[in-house]
Design a protein around this nucleic acid. Structure first.
Lengths: 213, 213
DNA sequence: AACGTAGCACTAACCGTTAGGGTTTCAAAA
DNA sequence: TTTTGAAACCCTAACGGTTAGTGCTACGTT
């Protein structure tokens, strides 16, 4: 598993990192549309085909932490405390993600993204993937048990919250404002649940045959 | 304005229609990815540049009624009866739009769209435009007076409802399920209104000197 | 009738992306 | 150690969407 990675893997990772860093530097220096893939490849001293063996498209060079984002949201659902409700957990995670985007040194990157139609388009298609991934995680939680449509709807709302809050004048306040709406939407979808009335009714996990292979 | 259109305009419209019809026919016959712009131009007996003078991109050949969709949603807001609440008006319109997409002879077109990543991407970017347009219409209604973030959020939710309902097994039921959630979300955003009792000590915004220039 | 221009054609290219085919470098089996 | 397989990389050439440049022609207008 976690054996010391061989020279080959280290070199591959180094190449990938060099390409991504070079690309981002050139994009920020000259503008995304003014830099071609051939420029990136030449500056990183690799072949054009090598760039595309590491990144699926030119836009993917900009959205490197794409999978991070997706995974963090999924884990906010799956790894939350057993008694923590869904929406507050998602709100907490989304708040961190938004603040990270809005306040960090990532500001010029987002300015570049907002200025390029191609990048905005790509971001949109990523968001759909993220929403589906999040919807799957929500639907898989036996403590929630909503309809597929309800899960997908809430997932979309949460993903929407990211770009809406990011573009708001006060991102932190926007997260709270939007999640108040999401919470209300979620509350209307409570057919098969008993939150925590008199008895806490903590189910005791009778036979966890399969955990996580 | 509505003078009998001259020969030039009629010819232009005919060319545009011929291109669109030819393109859609070829796409459905052979598949979107199997038909090149050069094929469409040849079959429609025009130059490639002429195709692009009528349509901004290859994908735009498929989404001709794009502006219809946008306008119908905006008008569902602006042209609704003075006493009709927002969400029911939007739900009614969205229900029609979804049923139109799901039941009509438009089914093979949507099958084609769902099968092509390029078309799905394009549709996504359209949806962002539609959401912004709808948000503007909602924000402009003095009878509603919500925050910009609330307007944009609800607009996104409504646009999301379209694709979610379209993909659901029972689109009509999905529209109602999703709009129940949207209605609840909308209800939580009632700052400058007096729904009913016990004012919960909200600050009253004493002097709104600047409204919206 | 003359003029200005909108619409269209043609060529040639740009750019992202991929296929095809070859070389080096590593890792693990023999 | 040697062999062997394949992963990573390189190069060339091309494909397909898109655009610039340059005209020509037909139409609307004066």
């Amino acid at each position: 598993m976690t054996v010391p990675p061989g020279r080959r893997e280290r070199k591959k990772a180094a190449t990938r990192r060099k390409i991504a860093e070079t690309a981002l530097r050139l994009f920020l220096e000259r503008g995304y549309d003014e830099v071609g893939i051939r420029d990136v490849a030449a500056e990183a001293d690799v072949a054009v085909t090598t760039v595309f063996s590491h990144f699926a498209s030119k836009e993917a060079l900009v959205f490197e932490q794409d999978e991070d984002f997706e995974q963090r949201l999924r884990r906010a659902v799956t790894d939350r405390a057993p008694d923590e409700p869904l929406i507050p957990a998602l709100r907490r995670e989304m708040r961190e993600l938004v603040l990270h985007c809005a306040a960090d040194s990532a500001v010029p990157i987002w300015r570049m993204i907002d200025a390029s139609p191609a990048l905005r388009k790509y971001e949109e298609s990523m968001r759909l993937r993220h929403a589906e991934s999040l919807a799957t995680a929500i639907a898989a939680d036996p403590a929630l048990s909503r309809t597929p449509t309800a899960c997908r709807t809430i997932a979309r709302f949460v993903i929407d919250a990211h770009s809406l809050a990011r573009e708001a004048p006060d991102p932190d306040a926007a997260v709270h404002e939007i999640f108040r709406m999401i919470e209300a939407a979620w509350q209307t979808t409570t057919p098969t649940e008993r939150p925590r009335p008199a008895v806490p009714a903590r189910n005791t996990e009778p036979a966890p045959a399969t955990t996580s292979p």
